[in-house]
């Protein structure tokens, strides 16, 4: 049965690819600073969950893909002005972003965000909370009434907590887990997990619906044959929500 579905999906995909041959080379924009989703490995190459995922999606959609790194701050402006064709950078699907770009279906289920601090008794509602600029977590911190301290890169948010500059950091839990595990007990999760956003999706220019449809179909085929869940377990951990 599984095999049958796969073949059908592959057929549907190749038909789609044959229809529009305009997009041969697709440039994928990512941040390269958000492990395990995307980061630069020791050779300076883009690596991580989204690297493997993106390469597989391109294979299934029969596209040649090239990876480009871009600062998080300007990642959407550079997409809409055409410097690359898609964003695949741990970007949660939100209504606000969807006004500017079009998302594919999500390739991770809505996953929890969490707080991490040096001790368990910090005041999450009234303290200083670090978050990366322009993230759903930053928007959430403002809503809670806590003081938001923004940083351009994810790593700086963690360093701010270690340096005592902020009381806690809020980020995707999948990003925080390795940091907590390897801190040797210095950092702990605080409070309850907060479900934010509609899962992570790829973002495309609004004027580029064909390309978006191709990746959307490729994501669907990976959901159908279970390879996406395998990738999620491998990179984001057993506890991360699956499809």
């Amino acid at each position: 049965m599984k095999k049958l579905i796969m073949t059908t999906a592959a057929l549907a995909l190749s038909a789609g690819a044959a229809m529009a041959a305009g997009h041969e080379l697709v440039r994928l924009g990512t941040e390269g600073a958000y492990p395990p989703y995307n980061f630069l490995d020791d050779n300076g190459e883009v690596a991580g969950f989204e690297r493997i995922l993106g390469d597989e999606l391109c294979k299934r959609a029969e596209l040649t893909c090239e990876w480009v790194t871009n600062d998080w701050d300007s990642i959407i402006p550079n997409l809409v002005s055409g410097n690359y064709d898609a964003i695949i950078a741990g970007m949660s699907i939100t209504a606000e972003r969807a006004e500017v770009v079009d998302f594919t279906q999500n390739y991770t289920p809505p996953s929890p965000s969490a707080y991490v601090a040096l001790s368990a008794d910090v005041d999450l509602a009234g303290g200083v909370i670090a978050a990366q600029t322009g993230t759903i977590q930053a928007a959430h911190v403002i809503e809670t009434g806590a003081t938001l301290l923004e940083f351009p890169t994810p790593d700086e948010t963690i360093q701010a907590v270690k340096a005592g500059e902020a009381d806690a950091v809020m980020a995707d839990k999948d990003f925080l887990i390795p940091a907590v595990e390897e801190s040797g007990g210095e950092m702990v999760f605080v409070g309850d997990d907060v479900p934010l956003g509609g899962g992570i999706g790829m973002a495309f220019r609004k004027s580029d619906p064909e390309l978006r449809a191709k990746f959307d179909a490729a994501i669907q085929s990976m959901k159908d044959d279970g390879t996406l869940n395998t990738l999620i377990v491998e990179w984001l951990g057993e506890d991360s929500p699956k499809f």
Partner: peptide, 28 residues
């Protein structure tokens, strides 16, 4: 301007790395 200059690499290399994602883990 998006050019990967010395500041970009200094920030990237200096950022703390966990052993899961590099052969050379280090702090900040």
């Amino acid at each position: 301007l998006g050019v990967e200059d010395i500041v970009f690499w200094a920030r990237e290399l200096g950022a703390s790395k966990t052993a899961r994602f590099t052969d050379y883990p280090h702090g900040d």
